[in-house]
């Protein structure tokens, strides 16, 4: 039986980075995952609502968790920032019954379902790199990545703070390395893989943000990666959509195609390229993928 999740793609994957959502939805049945929609879920606030109205952030996120609880399943995310915001809210109310009671009073007053604190939030990377995901992948018999040299880029909010995230050592993450290797790719290791992409301040402090994305882009380039892969659509925007601007601002050339994690899996499993829609990327991965015989 397929593993069911309440699917929380987050706003960016639903709108500006639709290729991520489409790829995830197509990939899920191939890996024995059933994604149940959450039509009444809001934005998690991306840290911005928390930064403006902390109590509102908490209430909105607990409302999302309560919807998953009503569906009777855990939440599956495909964005670092959504994962942190939802997990943090979950931890806050699970550890403090009085706080949960207070939040529930607000939810009930608004006509929303109160939360009992019984659900978990898992990023797709964690599920896939875990036992169940790995055996589902194995059962699928991936055609492989033909030695494509892949630089894993984790970003920040799937790793830190470890007290909230806790899946792996934030200083020595290995989940993407495990997947890349299992899929027949070659890992391009580099120091900047868990540094910040700068996206949270990209619009407000562009120059600073580009200095941040430089660390990982230059690191992946110098590690001779064919492509970079990320589990976060916000990191993807910073690394791909804004890469040419970062090059101009930093006086550098990166030419680094950046894949969404589900696209990397899709390539290894032979998913239709039209669904993965690499044409929506600002830095085209087509040439690197063609050289490896993947498109």
């Amino acid at each position: 039986m397929a593993k069911q999740f309440a699917y929380y793609p987050g706003c960016v994957a639903e709108f500006s980075s639709k290729e991520l959502n489409a790829t995830t939805q197509a990939l899920a049945p191939m890996l024995d995952i059933e994604l149940l929609p959450m039509p009444a879920a809001t934005c998690c606030g991306a840290g911005d609502i928390a930064e403006a109205k902390p109590n509102l952030y908490l209430t909105l996120n607990v409302r999302i968790l309560s919807q998953a609880e009503e569906m009777g399943v855990d939440v599956l995310t495909i964005c670092n920032v959504c994962t942190l915001n939802l997990r943090r809210a979950n931890k806050m109310v699970k550890e403090d019954p009085r706080l949960l009671e207070k939040v529930n009073e607000e939810l009930v007053a608004a006509g929303a379902r109160p939360y009992e604190g019984t659900k978990e939030v898992t990023h797709m990377l964690w599920y896939l790199a875990g036992e169940e995901g790995m055996s589902a992948l194995e059962a699928r018999g991936p055609r492989g990545l033909n030695g494509l040299r892949v630089a894993p880029y984790y970003g920040c909010q799937l790793l830190r703070p470890s007290s909230v995230m806790g899946f792996e050592d934030p200083d020595k993450p290995q989940s993407m390395e495990r997947l890349i290797t299992a899929l027949g790719g070659e890992v391009a290791d580099y120091e900047g893989k868990s540094k910040c992409c700068g996206f949270p301040i990209l619009l407000a402090r562009e120059e600073t943000a580009f200095k941040e994305s430089h660390v990982a882009l230059a690191g992946a380039r110098d590690a001779r990666a064919d492509v970079m892969v990320t589990p976060c659509p916000l990191c993807h925007l910073a690394m791909d959509a804004y890469q040419r601007k970062a090059e101009a601002s930093n006086g550098e050339e990166y030419n680094m195609p950046v894949l969404h994690l589900p696209q990397l899996l899709g390539l290894a499993l032979g998913l239709d390229n039209d669904i993965m829609d690499f044409g929506r990327h600002m830095v085209s991965p087509e040439q690197a993928l063609a050289t490896a015989g993947l498109v």
């Binding site: 039509p39 009444a40 879920a41 809001t42 109590n55 509102l56 409302r63 608004a110 929303a112």
Partner: peptide, 15 residues
Amino acid sequence: IKKLNEVKHLMKNVK
């Protein structure tokens, strides 16, 4: 989204 009224209520009332 669906049930936007819940959200509007929260935005107005959460202190």
